[in-house]
């Protein structure tokens, strides 16, 4: 069973929920696909065993063959290739590796070459469980190839927890596509609810079953509860706002190891998710 943990808004507690579910579960693998800011490993503290560079291809123009016709630049939607006065300027980090410029080039002057856009780190926790996370290099526009490779690496695992990127952009879609269940972590604030609505819409379009964990419960207002009711969204659990939790988190600790009620909440979520997914988790 593949379970994604996502949020819409950043900072609602995706990583807290994902890492603590993982610790409570005592089996399966966790992948951190929030490649612009991976931090699951700060809590799970795996020993890194391997670094895998992730490549993406970009166009290189043969100036001898190029006639500066401009077709590549007219085609590129990402401003990655720019026919200038005497040569063609390429911004590798803007290229989405679609291959369009190469197809269109009338003199076959364009070749694609690989370059590294980030890395995947795989390792094991102290208890021997597999953890992998991706790290996109600064200045790169898209972490999707890294996320796809993380999904591939974890493809054969029976149980995979996916710590997803915030938002609803391509990277989030890549992280959650095809999962069996999605856990939305939301906070009961106007921003939290607003961004959560986008996630609910996205998951609906992808036809992924979902449930909601309300984190920092007790803050904000009741809108999230009304929204969940009107959309018939199951509230899997509520995690109360607690300074003791925040302190433990800030020190890189797992809440489920220190706070029995928090661990019980994680067990409750896993129980509900396995029932909803029709599969045994615990």
């Amino acid at each position: 069973m593949k379970i994604a943990v996502l949020s819409g808004k950043g900072g609602t507690g995706k990583t807290t929920v994902a890492t603590n579910l993982f610790a409570t579960l005592e089996k399966g693998m966790l992948i951190d696909t929030d490649v612009e800011e991976p931090n699951s490993h700060l809590f799970l503290k795996p020993v890194i065993l391997e670094r895998i560079p992730v490549k993406k291809e970009y166009p290189v123009v043969d100036e001898e063959l190029c006639t500066l016709c401009g077709k590549c630049g007219d085609f590129c939607r990402y401003n990655a290739i720019l026919p200038a006065k005497k040569k063609v300027l390429v911004y590798p980090e803007l290229c989405h590796d679609c291959g369009g410029c190469q197809l269109l080039c009338p003199t076959d002057a364009i070749r694609y070459y690989p370059r590294t856009i980030g890395n995947i780190y795989t390792g094991k926790t102290l208890s021997g469980r597999s953890v992998a996370y991706g790290d996109l290099l600064v200045g790169e526009v898209s972490g999707v190839p890294i996320i796809e490779q993380l999904r591939e690496i974890s493809g054969d695992e029976k149980i995979v927890l996916i710590d997803s990127p915030p938002g609803t952009a391509c990277s989030t879609v890549a992280a959650v596509e095809g999962v069996d269940y999605a856990i939305i972590v939301a906070e009961p604030t106007p921003f939290g609810v607003s961004d959560m609505k986008l996630v609910v819409e996205m998951l609906g379009a992808l036809q992924i079953p979902m449930g909601v964990v309300i984190n920092k419960a007790g803050l904000g207002d009741r809108e999230i509860y009304d929204y969940c009711q009107s959309e018939r969204l199951e509230i899997l659990a509520e995690i109360p706002f607690s300074k003791a939790y925040a302190k433990q988190y800030a020190q890189g600790g797992l809440l489920s190891e220190t706070f029995p009620p928090f661990r019980e909440t994680m067990e409750l979520i896993l129980d509900k998710v396995s029932k909803a997914g029709g599969r045994e988790l615990l």
Partner: peptide
């Protein structure tokens, strides 16, 4: 024409101006 580009507005704008 480049003002709303998600990325690479500068290069695109230079091409347009040229």
């Amino acid at each position: 024409p480049a003002k709303g580009e998600p990325a690479g507005a500068g290069g695109s704008a230079v091409r347009f101006i040229s």
